[in-house]
């Protein structure tokens, strides 16, 4: 089932949506498939992700994926996102997502990695 209860719940009431007052890492990118845009901001200290928020104009799957992703990485070492995979997110979303929507799941992960790598936002 594409829209698992977890996806519905995190879409309706995301826990990590918003912005941070003084992020020291931020990146945003678009899903070329649908034009969705998501931004992730992080604060880091002592080699760890201290806090993070996501916001943008996204579908339920992308919003929920961003939310469970940030839940997973906050408080964890900076290199954790580089080790996470789409399968990790799907497991946390408890969802069976087809190939055409997989980018909705993985976009937040690549944006988070971009933020931590210090990538510049394309305009």
């Amino acid at each position: 089932m594409v829209y698992s209860d977890r996806i519905r719940e995190r879409f309706r009431r995301p826990r990590y949506q918003g912005s941070l007052p003084a992020p020291d890492a931020a990146f945003e990118d678009v899903n070329p498939l649908c034009g969705d845009r998501i931004r992730i901001e992080c604060r880091t200290a002592d080699g760890r992700i201290v806090d993070a928020r996501h916001r943008g104009d996204c579908c339920a799957i992308c919003t929920a994926s961003a939310d469970v992703l940030l839940e997973r990485v906050i408080g964890e070492p900076l290199d954790l996102p580089s080790r996470l995979t789409a399968a990790d997110l799907l497991e946390r979303l408890n969802a069976d997502v087809g190939a055409s929507r997989m980018k909705c799941v993985t976009l937040p992960l690549s944006v988070l990695r971009g933020a931590l790598d210090g990538k510049e936002v394309a305009r």
């Binding site: 594409v2 829209y3 498939l33 649908c34 034009g35 969705d36 996204c58 579908c59 339920a60 799957i61 929507r101 909705c104």
Partner: peptide, 21 residues
Amino acid sequence: IHPHDGAAILDERGIAVRAGH
């Protein structure tokens, strides 16, 4: 309802529409 979510829900009823830009 995001267009892609709308299209996915319609698909569950056998209705094929396009969504996106």
